[in-house]
Design a protein around this nucleic acid. Sequence first.
DNA 1: CCCTTGCGTGACAAATGGGTAACGGGGAGG
DNA 2: CCTCCCCGTTACCCATTTGTCACGCAAGGG
Lengths: 229, 229
Amino acid sequence: MAHVLIVDDERDLAELIDFNLRGAGFSTRLAFTGEAALAAAREQSPDVVLLDLMLPDLSGIEVCRHLRANSQLRDVLIVMLTAKSEEGDRIRGFEVGADDYVVKPFSVRELVLRLKAILRRSAAPKDSTPPLALGPLRLDVTAHRFYVDGQETSLTALEFRLMEHLMARLGRVQTREQLLEEVWGLSSALETRTIDTHVMRLRDKLGSARALLETVRGVGYRIVDPAAG
Amino acid sequence: MAHVLIVDDERDLAELIDFNLRGAGFSTRLAFTGEAALAAAREQSPDVVLLDLMLPDLSGIEVCRHLRANSQLRDVLIVMLTAKSEEGDRIRGFEVGADDYVVKPFSVRELVLRLKAILRRSAAPKDSTPPLALGPLRLDVTAHRFYVDGQETSLTALEFRLMEHLMARLGRVQTREQLLEEVWGLSSALETRTIDTHVMRLRDKLGSARALLETVRGVGYRIVDPAAG
DNA sequence: CCCTTGCGTGACAAATGGGTAACGGGGAGG
DNA sequence: CCTCCCCGTTACCCATTTGTCACGCAAGGG
């Protein structure tokens, strides 16, 4: 998933965040000072920088400015962490340099949600996508509708994502791990049988087209092209 | 896109905003004092003035008043930037005639969304925007009227914008996040039931046509085409 | 032909999402 | 100053969705 640079001089907090972000499937890197943060960012461009406002050497504001001044790093996403007590209005105005900010104290859950939201936004604001058509199947992402033999078939949000993922990778086997990561958005521990159950539910809804969703024993699942024999 | 005059005496902040607004496709101009702002505005009428409340010479309120007093500039949109501690002034800002205000701290994204929202809202109601008609529904943007089965139905300003947004995207699912951003002009990824409530209120007013506003569980809302049934 | 391992399936409890009613703050207009 | 209306928030409830388990069949290797 995405790479996050966590910058906070409170090691306990930084490590807590680190632990949880890894659990949520992010790759992470830690920095405890502003200098270290800049060095780390230059070395390995992160997708997001989680930046505490209060640092021992440079302030978060300084770090922010340096990042924005670097043409390599200008477009990195910056999420500011600010304590509620840092109400100094003058200082807080600078947070506009950030793409989002989270006020301490925050729940880890909220932080993860915000990160995912901000990444999703920057990813692809595609307002409309052409429908994926495949033999008797048609999946319209824009309208969020799915048809089998021209007949609309209702899928739950999760089933829809699973079907979209598989159809977009026609013919390629997807392992359970891949599906978990990319459809469920977790690298975390789900029982692997969860996927089997959902595949079964999808097959039920596919009806006569159920043969298009094949099991590859010991590997994973794939959608086959009905046109290819 | 639109031309924005940014007025703030904190140069770093002003330049940060400048950089981001340009990135978002606005053309911009900077002023660091109230006098400079007035001069710049007279010279090149902006569409929006982004006005910090705290300026060294004139206060933002003074600038606001001068703008409103100038027949050339009377209709310019004014967005006040205020720090949280300046709450008292916020009200006065409105009295003088700011069109919107943004409280520091704010994220870049938030500011851009608010600007777009306010521009959209005040977009000169073109003499003839063709009404959006859809089965029993008709929404006349120009006249700001809404009809169900030929019967005029009163919508609040917010409900009207929501309905317009949905009708203009017939058949396409709009996520809550999209609606928050584009109708409300907010970036918060926070969980809120606000949208659900307004959808419910809209449905009430739709009466017999309430089925046209569908919920897509786990995704968002959409208007369906009654002709495509 | 038997054993091992992986998968399909039905059942079930827990979590989630959304509809709805009600409340309260605050602005607008009288 | 007072009242009404708009709008955001909260709380409650229900239906659906989703993760997990247990069981048994099927495939494949020896």
